[in-house]
């Protein structure tokens, strides 16, 4: 399998008034065509920043200080991101959390889908409208013709998220980034939305990058997991391997903190310590070391990138040997 999305040693920082926030450092990830990758990690670890950087919609204060992002072989960062301009929304699409505020509140939802179609396809007028209604039907919205002219405030949160998925999938992208797509929805709706994303992804052979707090969800949904901590990817590997034999102490703690049920990470205050302040000038090579039980003098030296098993990588001086689940 060739990689559809290939992020290599990406570093990004925010220049703010209170200092430089080193939000991403040497982040590397691969996502194959049609694959599904879960990006997990506690709040503030840089998951959203990473996905915004892939789409080239990062904050104006952000600067990419190193690394490359390739999509289907194209360098997305070359020429100030010019390649991205034509691909965003067509080849790569994104859905966000809080669907109610992520849609334009004063534009009919059908029109919002149509805007994307008008931008990326040759469809015009009635044909565009018809296709927009089809898109609504695709995400299993009942009575799509009538819903075309609904405004977001007239729809439920779950419906809004379906509309957002319809916007994202309108041009049949090859990669969908879903940034906590179920936050703010009730449990049944969550399940329905995730099923929808999975089914549509399979139907269209679309790769999915799922960003979530919810390890249980990631386990159900993704074939690969990447664990993020304070702007580093600390461990990547096949989902089940990571759950059974986590190599990084942080992953191990995350897994231990996730019961089999649908417990959410933020409810489990079992990981001691906080993320380090990313503005500090003296961040250690391993940003987890200050919270780590296994910390040793070696942790002050540059991080290794160990291959535990094929496809299972960890950035740690003290990878845990085949610990029990």
């Amino acid at each position: 399998m060739s990689a559809l999305l290939e992020i290599d040693k990406l570093s990004l920082e925010f220049r703010t008034r209170s200092g430089i926030v080193r939000a991403l450092e040497n982040v590397s990830l691969q996502l194959p065509e049609g694959g599904s990758l879960g990006l997990v990690g506690e709040s503030g670890s840089g998951k959203s920043v990473l996905s915004f950087a892939v789409l080239g919609i990062q904050d104006a204060a952000a600067t990419i200080t190193g690394g490359t992002i390739r999509f289907a072989g194209t360098d997305l960062l070359a020429d100030g991101g010019s390649a991205m301009k034509t691909m965003r929304g067509r080849e790569l699409a994104m859905i966000f959390q809080n669907p109610r505020v992520a849609l334009n509140p004063i534009r009919q939802v059908g029109r919002q889908i149509e805007d994307v179609l008008l931008r990326h396809t040759a469809l015009r007028g009635a044909a565009a409208r018809a296709r927009a209604i089809e898109c609504l039907a695709d995400v299993r919205i009942p009575d799509p013709e009538r819903r075309y002219s609904a405004y977001p405030f007239e729809l439920s949160g779950g419906m809004c998220q379906r509309v957002m998925i319809a916007i994202a999938l309108a041009c049949k992208p090859r990669l969908l980034i879903a940034d906590e797509p179920t936050t703010g929805l009730d449990v049944t709706t969550q399940a329905a939305i995730m099923r929808l994303i999975r089914d549509l992804g399979r139907e269209k052979g679309m790769a999915t990058l799922l960003i979530t707090h919810d390890l249980g969800l990631a386990r159900d949904f993704c074939d690969k997991l990447a664990v993020m901590h304070a702007g580093h990817i600390v461990e990547v590997g096949p989902t089940e391997t990571l759950f059974r034999t986590p190599a990084h102490p942080y992953t191990a703690q995350l897994v231990r903190a996730t019961p089999v049920g649908q417990e959410r990470l933020e409810n489990l205050a079992s990981i001691p310590g906080n993320l380090p302040d990313l503005r500090r000038g003296d961040l250690p090579p391993c940003r987890f070391s200050e919270r780590c039980e296994l910390r040793s003098p070696a942790c002050a030296t540059p991080l290794p990138n160990l291959v535990v098993s094929p496809g299972h990588l960890v950035g740690c001086h003290h990878p845990q040997a085949r610990s029990s689940p």
Binding site: F52, I57, M94, L103, D115
Partner: peptide, 17 residues
């Protein structure tokens, strides 16, 4: 800085739109 502007940009709409 609202979320829906980010959605619009993420779906590749023209800056003018």
């Amino acid at each position: 800085s609202a979320d829906f502007i980010r959605t619009a940009r993420a779906s590749g709409l023209a800056p003018r739109t």
